[in-house]
Design a protein around this nucleic acid. Structure first.
Lengths: 213, 213
DNA sequence: GTCTATATCGGGATAGAC
DNA sequence: GTCTATCCCGATATAGAC
């Protein structure tokens, strides 16, 4: 039904405008509804909670990100691909930086069906992990180890976004510095792990990763 | 004032009982107050919000943890001390496992004065980091690098608690396996980093840590 | 300083009529 | 699908007792 989608879109648009103008907590559902020329109940018919409106946006942003993959994959090295991907992600998220904490708040509750770590979001998470699988593609090394890499990078990327959210430096430069340094470090670490005499390190890294699976 | 402390204690005790019995969201401040034989206003006189009651508990749990330091420090190796410390921590937190998400929820909001990463909780965080400083004590290696270690371990421990919160395996055995594997891996990694020809790795690790400071 | 009692507000969420 | 009316509860405010 086109009607349904249009109403949802209108509500989301109004909500995002208000969130941007006044902040999330300060915006009321009554306001979102009335500015969308609807009754409060109508808004709740389409969205089960105020949080879920942000969640819906996040899903859309994720989709936009996937459209960027081909451009990111043009970079020659793993390190450059990772940096490029995260920079593009931050560019997308920047207008909504002040909203992301709503996502992480639901992340904290294991019982929430919206938690990015929970079962209810497995599908969208796997798609996101797929981006990192593409970035890692072609890296040589112990196959058992590299199989864990996409999932590990997804976790790293969540952590980096969390850091970015809390980063009050101008243009979030500190996060960019951390991104560059951590990408370089990971590339070097992967190289070191490939050395013949790093067998013990490889074995224990594998044990670590498998215990977390 | 003894009176003040006693009232606060009574409120916290009642609150914890109710949270345990019915869950955090399902327990109302009115209920906490009335079951403590107090008026609603009294509860709000002592605690600025429902969240802050959980936060106060967290402070107490931290105190209990510090009492365990001497026992933990009896272990001979860094690896054993880390595992012992985290196991004791989990033992303390286990009865309140379902409450921790309140802590992590406030962590998501950089603006919240209760966020474990924010300025408002710097004092308690530094105390917690102090525990890891004691655990690391005596480890040799590049001083510039080891100076970052306590803070890094604190971050690791937050991550591990988050994993533990989401861990539905019996007795959270998966978390214990992860703890053991990660402690062993870190011990080995530190050893490797001390090797003479690991200079490049050391330099980039340091750059990484300093960019995150 | 500590607490009671009560009233009130604001806003998320829901039920049921249409 | 949408609206009105309502509930619930966290939080605040106030006035006064001890």
């Amino acid at each position: 039904m086109a009607k349904r989608d249009e109403t949802r879109r209108k509500l989301l648009e109004t909500a995002l405008d208000l969130f941007k103008a006044k902040g999330f907590a300060e915006t009321t559902m009554r306001e979102i509804a009335s500015k969308s020329d609807m009754a409060l109940g109508a808004a709740y018919y389409h969205f089960e909670s105020k949080d879920s409106m942000v969640q819906a946006c996040y899903g859309e942003w994720q989709g936009l990100m996937e459209a960027e993959i081909p451009a990111v994959l043009k970079e020659k090295t793993f390190e450059a691909r990772l940096v490029a991907a995260m920079r593009r992600k931050f560019d997308h998220l920047r207008p909504h930086r002040h909203l992301l904490w709503v996502i992480f708040r639901t992340a904290a509750d294991p019982a929430s069906p919206l938690s990015p770590f929970g079962r209810g979001t497995a599908a969208i998470r796997e798609r996101s992990i797929g981006v990192f699988r593409a970035i890692v593609e072609g890296e040589s090394g112990d196959p058992a180890l590299t199989a864990h890499l996409p999932r590990l990078l997804w976790l790293y990327h969540m952590g980096l976004i969390f850091f970015w959210m809390h980063d009050e430096s101008k243009g979030q430069r500190k996060t960019d510095a951390l991104l560059v340094a951590s990408a370089r470090f990971m590339a070097l670490a992967l190289k070191v792990l490939r050395l013949p005499f790093a067998g013990a390190l490889r074995r224990q890294a594998l044990q670590l990763l498998e215990s977390a699976a």
